[in-house]
Simulated scan of single mutants.
Amino acid sequence: MPNATVTVSEFVLHCAIDKDKMTFTIVALALIYVVTLLGNLLVIVVIIINPHLHSPMFFYIGTLAVFDMVNSSNLIPRMLAVLLSNATTVPYGPCLLQLSVVYHLGVANGLLLSAMAYDRYVAVVYPLRYPSLVTKKTVCISIFLVNIISAAILTPYMVFATELSFCRTNILPYCFCDFVTMVHISCTEDPRHLTLLSSTTIATGVGELAIILFSYSRIVVAALKISSADGKKKVFSTLLTHLLVVCLFYLPLMISYILPGIGVQLSAEAYNVLVIIAIMVPPMMNPIIYSFRNKEIKGSIYRLWTRKRTTPDTFHGWSRM
């Protein structure tokens, strides 16, 4: 009976990658994963072992590194298993878990980037008030709220995902478990599923981008008042690299999540490429953009490898990124 609803105990991942691109994709994913793990793990270790880095800005950087490691570990090993050994079967429960982690960290990363942009805005525009406005307590509360808000936004997706019924197929034409794909292959015809995706993506994405762009624009205004040409160059160089990561994160995700909600279906390969760029490239780049360009972290890494002890007067100030 083709229209009979069946209980799905597992999904089959069908990674839509051309055979002539398979080797390149496997090597690229493996390289991205190794660089992401090593880079973010190094940042976390340096921040933990150096007491001079136990300050608000580095709490944000450390949290971002944790998010990036979890996000990459949630996706890339499974994708490599699918591509290398044809291990395409995923039980229903782990599939929903992977989906929930992807969406939770997607929202949490955006909120965290907004908080980090606002932190830099306060540090540059109100440097004298910064120590009283941004404390370890306020940073911990903001990180807690980031996760609470992300979980609240995720909850309707999980409810809808459990309501989906499948009567045609259990094959997901992507390299990982995804809410949009589940809706497309399900027999549940309810427009609210994809409408929810588009509306929450627009609301959170536009809101977060507004905060980020506002913060960076105010930093630009403050930078233009700097008399030193080198100072201006350093600020603008940092802002441009930060905006590059923001664009890599937001634009592909917004395209891939908003279009299905308004009735535009992307090809499996196009969707995979967009997701790889949005979810996997920024975690690899973030340690370079937010950490390795930072004098305090670079100094700590150098001393870690050379086993030299840091001195208290080496670390002071907030705007050396």
Rank of each mutant, 00 (worst) to 15 (best):
V8P: 08
E10T: 10
H14F: 13
T23D: 04
F24D: 11
T25W: 00
V27D: 02
V27K: 01
A30W: 01
I47F: 07
F59C: 15
A65V: 00
F67K: 01
S85L: 11
S85T: 15
C95E: 02
L99M: 15
H104G: 09
L105C: 07
R120L: 01
A123H: 02
V125N: 02
L128A: 14
Y130M: 01
V134A: 04
T135Y: 07
K136T: 12
I141A: 11
A152T: 09
V159I: 15
F176M: 14
F179R: 05
V180S: 03
T181H: 10
T188P: 02
E189V: 13
E189D: 12
D190A: 10
D190S: 06
I202L: 09
Y216F: 15
I219A: 01
A229W: 08
V235N: 09
S237M: 10
L244T: 10
L248R: 02
L248K: 05
Y250W: 12
Y250G: 12
L253Y: 14
L259R: 01
I262T: 07
S267K: 07
P283D: 00
N286K: 15
I289E: 06
I289G: 01
S291T: 07
N294Y: 05
K295P: 08
G299F: 07
I301P: 11
I301M: 08
R307M: 06
P312W: 01
W318Y: 07
